[in-house]
């Protein structure tokens, strides 16, 4: 005696929820949980505010930070990084200029690393008579282990108006993903 055979599910149902809806639901739940955890652990969305990273990043732009970028490798010169300023929510966006063990100095707007001028292609060329970088001066500092020197890209600002300096390694949250 033959068993009655269930009629096949309509094609649109198979397309939408698969042949076995319960399995599809479990798979979907697992995927969502994994994606959520993955995002929480590795990626942090940020909203750029302020002008210190102009012209590279403008006020109001949305970007993502890779929080795993420095898990196995230290920050490199030129990386744009997120720095914990006030808790996990308020971050600073700056560019790494000086690395641990280096001597850092700015003379008339030119960054000197161990006495050698640093090429900075991310800075805007001088326009309309406005010199970029402006004539900043920072006395020499030797960066200790775990210290990085960070500055924003907008060097046409007055030095006193620009928040920059030495940051401890443990305050660096991650690297900007989409530079």
């Amino acid at each position: 005696m033959s068993q009655p055979i269930d009629p096949p599910a309509p094609w649109w149902q198979v397309m939408a929820i698969g042949r076995n809806p319960r399995t599809t639901l479990v798979r979907l739940a697992i995927t969502l949980v994994l994606v959520f955890i993955g995002f929480r652990v590795s990626i942090q969305p940020i909203l750029v505010q302020g002008i210190s990273m102009q012209p590279t990043y403008k006020d109001g732009q949305r970007r993502f930070l890779n929080q795993l970028a420095y898990r196995f490798a230290p920050p490199q010169r030129g990386d744009v990084i997120g720095i914990r300023e006030a808790g996990k929510q308020v971050l600073l966006l700056k560019r790494v200029i000086g690395l641990p063990g280096e001597r850092f100095r700015i003379v008339q707007g030119t960054v000197l690393i161990n006495g050698e001028p640093l090429e900075e292609p991310y800075l805007l060329p001088p326009t309309n008579g406005v010199r970029n970088p402006a004539r900043w001066n920072v006395p020499e500092v030797r960066l200790e282990e775990g210290e990085h020197y960070v500055i924003g890209d907008n060097r046409s600002m007055r030095q006193d108006d620009h928040y920059f300096g030495i940051v401890a390694r443990d305050r660096i949250v991650g690297r900007l993903m989409n530079p």
């Binding site: 300023e85 600073l92 700056k94 500092v141 300096g165 940051v167």
Partner: peptide, 10 residues
């Protein structure tokens, strides 16, 4: 009570 700044000069 003191404020903490992420960036500092030496």
């Amino acid at each position: 009570v003191s404020t903490v700044r992420a960036l500092r000069s030496r």
